[in-house]
Amino acid sequence: MLKNKLKIGGSWIAILVLIVVPSIIYGDKFFSTTNAFNVLRQMSMIGLISIGMTCVILTAGIDLSVGATVALAAVLSAMLTEKSVFLAIFVPVLAGIFIGAVNGFIIARLKIVPFIATLAVQMAVRGIAYIITDIKSISVSEHAASFAILGRGYLYGIPIPVLILALVLVIMGFVCQRTSFGRSLYAIGGNEDAAKMMGIKVARNKAIAYVLTGAFSGLAGVILCSRLGAGQPLSGTGWEMDAVAAVAIGGTLLSGGVGGVWKTLSGVLITALIGNIINLQGNVNTYVQQIVMGAIVLVVIIIQRRTQMKES
């Protein structure tokens, strides 16, 4: 157990550095509750997606459709605010679950490689989002004032999206560590044939991983819509790569079988902190920002791998 805690050491040290150094440089501007909540709220949506993505990657899969799912969920949510807040929250999540189920079916049943399967689904879902909106942003209905609470509200002084992320994280952490389903993800990613021979329901559990990812992406879309007060068909573009990066930075192997959602939290935090720091620097050209971001991510991953190799 102690060993397990030490293992995540590498990325948490990186996080510490990313907090201490800017605190010294920027002082209050960085090291404040407001900014901390800013970072956390920024990362809550990618965080949710990354948790699902972790499950998928543990099985040695990948889900490229999450960004498109976010967009479709967001526009559905905005449209449904006309009807009721309840529908605006639940229908998009159901849509996410449905997309996940389609992914799961194609991958687990039809045995199409995840990369191709989810790429195809990504295109289709994005297309649907374009068609139903005519590629226009859809505003949240004025009568649905309470809908904004989800993305912008606070509970006990903590932003609600952050609370949602924390809740999902705790639940999924438990699922991965303490349930048969969770462990089977590791077994499948470790050696799918062996898992099958051990009597694990490989196809079913793989599919569930995609369904979960779909559900979390749908939820992320609803939060996004609530925060922006609008559903945009172009939103969520490239998020799948941000999520994959966060999972990898956290230390979950893309080859499957090793990692976990708490590790992914560290990966999400690292990317969010880097983004925040670059933002504080101000007046940096966005393209330069991207280069810097890429460079830092690379450095963090190299350090990660180094420490991991030493541990094993």
Partner: peptide, 17 residues
């Protein structure tokens, strides 16, 4: 053929499933 999973712990390999 080896039908266990290398990345999991010894104990988990015995009990998984």
């Amino acid at each position: 053929e080896i039908s266990l999973i290398g990345q999991l712990s010894v104990a988990e390999n015995i009990y998984i499933g």
